[in-house]
Design a protein around this nucleic acid. Structure first.
Lengths: 244, 244
DNA sequence: GCTGTTTATCGTCAGGCAGACGACTATGAT
DNA sequence: ATCATAGTCGTCTGCCTGACGATAAACAGC
């Protein structure tokens, strides 16, 4: 057999799509870009693009992230592979397999539109997902392609991952207070947490938080101690997400 | 822009690779096939193959599973997507992106060699991974391609997933005893568990196990009650994996 | 039948952790 | 000065787990 027999396999296009999450105004938000060309022209979609011939998947995701947001995966943000979507008809033009990646970022300045996107914005995930599948009257339409499904999977991954890992700190600036971290959990899970029990839990988990010595009064009220993320990646025992 | 512009993106081959795990003789084993053609001819590899033009990824995985093992994903076995591997040089012939899937199956009769594989066997994951990356003297070589990495990721997924889900029952026949289920946990985690605490835990978790009424004495000793998997998918609170 | 071995199953107890919630502290606003 | 807001420290109770004793029901060998 020849070392390269293109007739032996069908050709695919491979893309990366990004679920970029942040917490803004006490709400979990995702980055959405408006499509400038068909199909789904004018509809909101997740940022993404083709993987280049000499690129690894994670490199492609980091490149797209930088192009769309100016964000570097190194600086605070967290990037991980999410899942791969390959329904034969997910793109009407051709056979496209998309390797979705999940990015958790601190609250950023306004996103900059880049690449082939007309514009970009942060949108609360609730509003992006609520009409999921129901195209009421053709307007306020849901995300393009299967991006609602991808976004939902990314949100669910984030919700479960902050339970047993220290990833919630990826939503925070380099220095943050216990209250700010609690508001991250509250926004991602959509619940209210007891400030006293939360404080006991996060300050009692070794390696989760390291005090920097400073204090801040950003949120009003009594000044709060400032922390930065500690070395621990896994929380043991985990944070417990309240039922319902 | 034309609806299909092949020059706009590099063509990829897309494959599915399978990490098929089972518990045999108190050891976690993976299905390995011997490669019948270059590259890596004669080396062990994970089963897998090209995704067809009209196939979804999970369909392709189920088809490959049936071809290699005669196993249907419906009947007891569990199949889920694991991760996607797309290093530009992971296959020396061409650009291949592989969507790995994880299969958890009960102990099966001898695997049947199918497809283009010369032979297939169950191998303890320890022996497949121990020389991971070290090609000592060129023999007893590790798995082909990046399959050692894929297998390691699959094993780690299985180890963590039986903590908080009822998936350990996928390693068991339709009816099983608490002791058999405990030996599954012990084999997957590589630890010894206290039979009394394990029994209390699994029988006390609602929806995990449903007694069938029968008993068996397969393992010797006092007859044990038979159970089948209950409806619950998630264990709450989870099984705790002892620290090393 | 009796004894030892094996596996299953039930109970007990102490320690750790989480939820509920009271109390106090330190800021800014009025 | 008083209030509102947010942060921090404690207490108490109940649940769950790990350690481990004790009993039950089969089989093997004498």
């Amino acid at each position: 057999m020849s070392p390269y027999d293109p007739s032996a396999f069908p050709p695919f296009a491979v893309t990366v799509d990004l679920v970029v999450l942040t917490v803004r105004h006490h709400a979990l938000c995702a980055l959405a870009v408006r499509r400038g060309e068909p199909p789904y022209q004018g509809r909101w979609a997740l940022p993404g693009g083709f993987v280049r011939a000499d690129e690894d998947l994670s490199q492609a995701a980091a490149r797209e992230l930088a192009e769309e947001t100016g964000l570097r995966a190194q600086s605070g943000a967290h990037l991980e592979q999410l899942a791969t979507y390959g329904d034969p008809h997910r793109d009407p033009r051709m056979r496209v397999v998309s390797v979705a990646h999940l990015v958790l970022a601190p609250d950023l300045p306004a996103p900059r539109a880049g690449g082939d996107a007309r514009s970009a914005r942060w949108a609360p995930v609730g509003s992006l997902l609520e009409q999921d599948g129901f195209d009421t009257a053709g307007e306020a339409a849901p995300l393009a392609f299967d991006h609602a499904r991808i976004l939902a999977d990314g949100v669910e991954r984030a919700r479960s991952k902050i339970e047993y890992s220290s990833l919630a700190t990826a939503f925070c600036p380099p220095e943050f207070t216990v209250g700010e971290l609690r508001r991250v959990y509250e926004a991602v899970w959509g619940v209210a947490l007891d400030p006293r029990n939360f404080h006991r839990k996060v300050t009692g988990t070794v390696g989760f938080l390291v005090p920097t010595g400073g204090t801040t009064t950003r949120q009003g009220g009594r000044p709060a101690q400032l922390f930065q993320a500690g070395g621990a990646a896994l929380l043991n025992p985990p944070m417990l997400r309240p039922e319902v």
